[in-house]
Design a protein around this nucleic acid. Structure first.
Lengths: 343, 343
DNA sequence: GAGAATAGTCGAACCGATTCGACAAGTGGG
DNA sequence: CCCACTTGTCGAATCGGTTCGACTATTCTC
């Protein structure tokens, strides 16, 4: 394998000169710089990442910790991963994907061994066991998802509370007075998935203020159970005219459920979901929804992480919590409720 | 940061002794080994990955090259990634995820800089531009997907030709004599997605031998276009009693299409797809299908890659092309065709 | 025209591991 | 009792970069 010594010899200079010629950290005559670059090209030189990491304590790799939880909706995960990975690459970083079951050990491993310059954590729980490890170390970290204690880390997420209010208000303005909200399974909450109750509580409270009859339930994240659950809910609340979905599996199941009962949206039921544009497109979901923008969140997270990594003064800046504002993508699945029962 | 020198000092031995105590590559007295291990624990020592890579020329990282092509069905990708990443971790490797647009440069970069010990390529095209780069280098590589020229690499894939025959035979045995096959878009073929024509050609040929009227078409991989296309196809071939799907988007669209036209499977139409079990579960697809086993393929690929990396003699072994045999998962969406037209 | 600053280059140290060869002490065989 | 061998340890070299300090030659300033 060709190393910088070979390049230096071919260019007739010392190793240090070759290094400076490539990094530009000291003045080098144009002529020498050219010779070095020619040598690099001729020999096909690429710096050894390990050696460089050893010398500079920088790896230009970020760690991406993504857990694949059996009852969380998997396809959404890919978009976060893509957002992170693509953005990292644009900024000159590679992505080390960690899907280890034991995230705490994995985190310790990749940071203490200095495999990465910083980490992005997905699927952050309210009391996430990974956070103490992070705080004990010195690596910058950015979270997607909001823990109870945000000290020492930067946090990005959709504003789920605002999303809850937005969804309720949207239906309220159209005239709906009885609404169902389907959330992810209760054990997602127990595991610390704060986005579930954030949206729910805000929605419940807002509905109360507006005088709306509100049924907040959680449903399984798996087919076909969720399909049956959705059907049962529609039966149980025949007067409900609006359906809010914070459960992607429920969204995926809904078209079939509606078809089977001969219901149409928005004629018989106004439907408003919370998921990503990509998800909607892939499955041709005909429902209006609040965009959850996983790619955008991934992008913001990496941008901030790289700032912290590269800007020594940024390390001193206070940590940020940034919520992106929910926006409704109108697909025409909401309308004023019919007067009188249509189901 | 604590290094092996600190450990050695704490244990009262030399650095080399500490190293040997931890690696076990030379005999070390039980007592010293214990002291070293205590020191490691007390100080929280984790070897520096860069330094180790430099010294051993091994990184214990594998590269995973996954392209996210705009018209290929994305959710399937996650399962390959999970299969690879989880298996790698089980075998003691981390995964560097490369989603760079420019895969060729990315491949050169991660191999020549020795960031990885080997690579797994997903979504391999028939004349894949990444292969020459691989052959020019010395890193072991494993592909998922079959290129025209397999020299120098190990290859794993579903046996798509056998899958095509299996699907045709399955319907033929039930008595079907007119069948539609929907493949991915033609430009997937043009880009080198050999699995498309492999399955199609085998199916066409097999249908010819069996005297079956066979309509092989390609459809878009996007909603809602694919839904319309499927509907149009059913209209265009009213006598077709069997539908084969090698296009995941078409599968996702089918339930709605069937509902809209009041068709039921298998009463009016026998349906047989080709996708993964996970995909079927997530979207509650009620169709029988040939399991494409992305997790299993990812697992096999990594196993073989690690064998090549770790076993110096394995490097000499001839390269393998291994096809996994397609198997039908029966969901009851195929049956004997009705006599006479039912649609 | 002297002294200071600048440009351009080099040698050597360093980052943190692994590993080779050397060596001392202990063990066994003839 | 001597020699060969094994066991346990250490010092030093090495992997391939980066970077500091030193040095020379040139340019600038007053």
């Amino acid at each position: 394998m060709v190393n910088i010594g070979d390049v230096a010899r071919a260019a007739g200079v010392s190793r240090s000169t070759a290094s400076y010629a490539l990094s530009g950290k000291r003045a080098i005559s144009e002529e020498v710089r050219q010779r070095v670059e020619d040598a690099v090209r001729d020999l096909g030189y690429t710096p050894n990442a390990g050696a460089r990491a050893l010398a500079t304590s920088q790896t230009r790799v970020i760690g991406l910790l993504a857990q694949f939880l059996p009852d969380e909706f998997a396809p959404a995960m890919l978009q976060y991963i893509m957002g992170v990975s693509n953005t990292a690459r644009e900024l000159g970083y590679d992505t080390l994907l960690v899907s280890d079951e034991d995230h705490e050990r994995a985190l310790t491993r990749i940071t203490r061994s200095r495999m990465v310059d910083g980490v992005v954590l997905l699927n952050v729980a309210e009391n996430d066991d990974r956070l103490p490890i992070l705080r004990a170390g010195t690596h910058p970290a950015v979270l997607v998802g909001v823990p109870a204690d945000c000290t020492g880390v930067d946090v990005f997420d959709l504003d789920f509370e605002e999303a809850g209010r937005l969804m309720v208000d949207h239906l309220h303005r159209l005239g709906h007075r009885e609404i169902i909200l389907i959330s992810p399974p209760e054990h997602v909450v127990e595991r610390g998935g704060a986005y579930v109750w954030r949206l729910r509580n805000a929605a419940v409270e807002h509905a109360r203020l507006r005088g709306i009859t509100f049924h907040a339930v959680s449903g399984p994240a798996r087919q076909p159970e969720i399909g049956r659950e959705v059907a049962a809910l529609l039966d149980a609340h025949p007067d409900a005219t609006g359906l809010l979905l914070n459960n992607e599996a429920a969204v995926a199941a809904l078209p079939t459920v509606l078809h089977e009962r001969g219901l149409r949206s928005p004629a018989n039921l106004s439907v408003l979901g919370r998921y990503s544009d990509e998800f909607a497109r892939t499955f041709s979901l005909p429902f209006s929804f609040v965009e959850s923008a996983p790619d955008r969140l991934g992008r913001m997270a990496v941008r901030q992480l790289v700032r912290r990594i590269e800007n020594p003064s940024a390390a001193q800046e206070p940590h940020v919590i940034r919520f992106i504002s929910p926006e409704i993508v109108d697909r025409g699945s909401t309308a004023a409720p019919h007067r009188g029962p249509v189901r």
